[in-house]
Design a protein around this nucleic acid. Sequence first.
DNA 1: AAAATAAGTCAATATGGCTGACATAAATTT
DNA 2: AAATTTATGTCAGCCATATTGACTTATTTT
Lengths: 172, 172
Amino acid sequence: MADINFLKAPQPRDEAVAVIELLFFAYRDFVSDPDQVLADVGFGRAHHRVLHFVHRAPGMSVAELLDILKITKQSLARVLRQLVDGGYIEQRTGSADRRQRLLFTTDRGKDLIDRLIALQARRIETALEQFSADERRSIRAFLMAVTDESEHAHIADRLLPAQTSAAPGKET
Amino acid sequence: MADINFLKAPQPRDEAVAVIELLFFAYRDFVSDPDQVLADVGFGRAHHRVLHFVHRAPGMSVAELLDILKITKQSLARVLRQLVDGGYIEQRTGSADRRQRLLFTTDRGKDLIDRLIALQARRIETALEQFSADERRSIRAFLMAVTDESEHAHIADRLLPAQTSAAPGKET
DNA sequence: AAAATAAGTCAATATGGCTGACATAAATTT
DNA sequence: AAATTTATGTCAGCCATATTGACTTATTTT
């Protein structure tokens, strides 16, 4: 077997470097899954990211989206415009704060993002199959730990509950 | 605590979506660590990636590097030229195949990549601290499983042995 | 009324990627 | 030996995504 070495218990720095590279390879391959579907509708990965997060947290403001993506509003502008013009995303004036433009996916947007998520989820589900519930918990906890501490509350509050709330009665 | 939900055991699709997002956040933050250092020398993330992999597998050919990065030679050209012109990477004609230009980091290149790796490794080491050796093995195995199957031999052969061989006598 | 905020826009620029075409040298095949 | 293939480099043009900076409009907060 060629892939035995990475399973060894290496020195801390070596282990970190291995994980750095594994993160690169994993990310490189998993973000490329939707490329063909995106190209067919004339979109890129930036459109995918916007659609994904709007879908996952419907009604989010533009400012919140910018904060998740960590890009400037000028960068978002073109991509969001194309998504709105193409009928994938809808903007509604906020009721509490009428300055806000709250973002929602349309049926068309939902159809597209569902197809994109299916491609990536298949890869992730397959990768997770070999692990126990505890091991999967560790994997999720590790990825969270790699993320900036300051983002944790953000992520847990706005994104992850949206998914666990779909499976109620499943406490701790 | 706000970040309890992601630790729950969710439905397969929900779990996959959570992991997709966690991968996005983890990658987003960990690749940004070296940005300031890179900007100081006038380089970007593309230079970092090239320097990293050349450093980790000294003497690799241009073709091998392209295969790892999954970009075209025209995309690599400018970045590699700047690294060579700046004295960070050295090209030597292959002895077995004189068409090849084998790539090596110079002392200058090693100094820079060492600083960049230190930044990312600190983040990864900190994230790994809370996990046992078995859990860490699972984390590495998961990231490998997310990567295309066809890349496994490549990664294990060319990259990871270079790091475990640096700590000899540390078997299993 | 004044100041701050949310969003949008215009303009210029940088980075990193792409395709296509072509050139050179060296290795391999016939 | 000639023809072909391979490894690399290069020119030219283009596209997608991102940046900074300046400014506008509508709305909310002070």
